[in-house]
Design a protein around this nucleic acid. Structure first.
Lengths: 150, 150
DNA sequence: TTTCAATAATTGATATATCAAATATATCAA
DNA sequence: TTGATATATTTGATATATCAATTATTGAAA
């Protein structure tokens, strides 16, 4: 009797393969949609901006954790966002090691304009999948995250 | 009445966030395990080698699709694998545009030696998750992939 | 056979991922 | 205050992702 979900075996049978493939395919699709709608911004840049808007005054380190990116990656993403005029960066009042990051009006406007496209991407990606399944999968994935977080 | 799985909203509630976070956390964990066991190879290099071993004679383009990577990425990953002595590359007999790629004995040996670590990583990542849930999640994720594949 | 379109792979440019090392600033103990 | 240590961020080096452009080769039409 063989297991239905082999731990090892053909790549295709491994759940992690499905996870990786799903998120990559989704990101490709979403990125292309944004591009086709005239937005010159990457998914990662969007994510960082969004997280900043939802958590004003957050420090870069926490921001990195929130978008599960490396500090170094966040530094470079922020550089580009500042250069593009979506973010403003000033030194923190009380702790000069930190940067105070604010989403500019241009950034907010872009986020607002992008939202319909983002919503549509998600809707499209979740077509023919019912909410219970999504919730179950989300819990399962969050458990994987927990299991791997040392 | 609010939806249990909002299409838009706080980042944390979005399924795609969970997917991305899970696979990244898993990859970080798995990569660290490999490193700690003395293997000097990336997850992506492992994936490409594994796919080549399971599909001898495959052309790079199909290989790229199989590991859902870009042709350019695969080209560069292969370069490194050849340089490290894990792969051998010769010109194809009948079609000189193609490369014939073979996993060397060294490559096979490394894959074999790595397998226990890989198995353990997967086991650890799936702790406390029952098989039915995994299967359901896998089907859900495969549906997402399908939905986004244009 | 010459020419042109299709195919396989590479290369260039830019963005992100990752780890280690370096900077800058803050904090706390002596 | 000085000195050691901790914290926040940046920088450097290398790997991968992505798209566009290029190269090499093949296949088919004129």
């Amino acid at each position: 009797m063989s297991s239905k979900v082999p731990v090892a075996g053909k790549l295709n049978d491994v759940i992690f393969y499905s996870i990786d493939k799903a998120i990559r395919t989704y990101r490709q699709y979403a990125q292309k949609q944004l591009r086709d709608h005239g937005f010159d911004i990457t998914i990662d840049q969007w994510l960082v901006m969004k997280a900043l808007l939802e958590n004003p005054g957050i420090k870069q380190q926490d921001l990195a954790g929130m978008v599960f990116k490396d500090n170094a990656s966040v530094t470079r993403i922020i550089e580009l966002l500042v250069k593009a005029g979506y973010l403003e960066r000033t030194v923190h009042q009380t702790d000069r090691r930190m940067a105070k990051l604010t989403v500019t009006d241009k950034g907010k406007g872009t986020l607002r304009d992008m939202q319909p496209v983002v919503n549509n991407n998600r809707k499209r990606a979740l077509k023919n999948i019912d909410e219970d399944t999504i919730l179950l999968a989300k819990n399962m994935l969050d458990q994987v995250t927990e299991n791997c977080k040392h």
